[in-house]
Amino acid sequence: MKQTTIFIIDDDLVSQFATRYCIEQYDKEFNIVACGSAEEGLRVCANLLDEKEELPDIILLDLVMGDMNGWAFIENLELLTGDRKKPEIYVLSAFVNSKDRAIAKQHSLISGYFDKPLTKSSLNKIFSPKAAR
């Protein structure tokens, strides 16, 4: 069975570490790739597409980052991938922003929105059968 690939895109190293640790404590094996910026995340995705490799299954995305924020990342990923299968994107945010939550709920590429730090309960929601969400 193919291992699930998860990208963590977050410019905060402590958050990156905490998210990775939470995933590693989960009772499944994952291929985890951490990117320190939205630009880096896009570069890695572009390289995968160039190499005819699969994109990650899941992206855990911070919205508030330096030069390019999470929303810009999503727009660019949409342009980059065209009609190819897109990863499930889950927003991880340290800031409870009702406007961002409302936009995320309506956005077709966003599968969920979680507060930082990521918890086992959040992972259960991500990995539960789709119908349960």
Rank of each mutant, 00 (worst) to 15 (best):
S121E: 14
A34V: 13
V96T: 09
K116P: 00
G82M: 03
K105L: 11
E51V: 00
R84V: 08
A104G: 01
L80T: 07
D11E: 12
D100F: 03
V96G: 09
F73Y: 15
P129I: 10
L123S: 00
E51F: 09
L123W: 02
T81F: 06
M65D: 05
D57R: 03
K52R: 15
I8M: 14
L48D: 05
I89T: 05
V14T: 15
T81Q: 07
C22D: 02
E51S: 13
T19M: 02
D27C: 05
I103N: 01
S15W: 08
V44D: 03
M65H: 10
F114S: 06
D57K: 01
L77N: 05
L80E: 02
I32A: 11
H107P: 05
L80W: 08
E40L: 08
I110K: 01
Y90C: 03
A132H: 08
E39I: 12
L55Y: 07
K52H: 14
R20T: 13
K99M: 12
S121Y: 03
K120I: 10
D27T: 09
L77T: 00
R84Y: 09
I8N: 10
I126N: 02
C45S: 08
N31M: 11
D50N: 14
N31V: 11
L55W: 02
I126H: 01
S98T: 11
E75H: 13
M68T: 15
D62N: 12
A102I: 10
Y21E: 14
I103S: 07
Q106E: 15
I58Y: 01
E78P: 02
F127I: 05
F73H: 01
S98P: 02
G41L: 05
I110S: 02
L61K: 08
T19R: 01
S37N: 09
F127E: 05
E88C: 04
S15V: 09
K116D: 03
A18Y: 05
V44Y: 02
G82L: 00
V44N: 03
G112L: 07
C22L: 06
L109K: 10
A102V: 08
